[in-house]
Write a protein that binds this DNA or RNA. Structure first.
Lengths: 88, 88
DNA sequence: AAATAACATTCTGATAATATAATATTATGA
DNA sequence: TCATAATATTATATTATCAGAATGTTATTT
């Protein structure tokens, strides 16, 4: 079991509207980053930055696939947390 | 259903080790603030500050009871989230 | 009303988070 | 190897958070 400190680091990495939306989009069709970026209408560097924050927190992993990079959710619990929140 | 912005505000208010510990203590025996403060070994103003942050986010409510103030958890989902996290 | 207990608020410097422009990297195709 | 697409990194200015000391408030007891 992770320490409170580690647990709160995970939470912190989720606790941002843009990042919550990114996670939600990754939950569905998966990894198409540039599509997410277009749909969210944010600069590419901003999206990339948020992705990095979540990757550093261990929430996401990435694998390159030719010129694109595919992100996916590593910590299943994160999905549950978002589901709970959406019912609040 | 709350907006992503509101949802992330709730998460943000939880995403701190001290605050997670406070919530955990409130889950059990409830509201005795000064006891929590002693157990956590933090200055009273620091605890009070964290309590206010969570109250402003709507997570906690408080009612005065003579000279003491009793805090309790308002958003049940917060407990679930902590439970999920503790299993990560 | 003075003393005390239990909290809350204000203030301050320190640190961290945010957004985005600019630039760099990596991979593919002509 | 040039051009282009997709993504990452760096740099920077702005804003938000943190901890805790100092001080203020509210309620009780005598």
């Amino acid at each position: 079991m992770k320490s409170l400190d580690e647990q709160s680091r995970i939470l912190k990495a989720i606790a941002h509207p843009h990042r919550m939306e990114i996670i939600r989009r990754l939950k569905g069709d998966g990894c198409n980053v540039s599509e997410i970026q277009k749909n969210m209408g944010l600069p590419q560097s901003t999206i990339s930055h948020h992705l990095l924050i979540m990757k550093n927190a261990g929430i996401l992993s990435s694998r390159r696939n030719g010129t694109t990079v595919c992100y996916s959710i590593q910590i299943e619990e994160v999905k549950e947390i978002l589901d709970i929140l959406s019912g609040v």
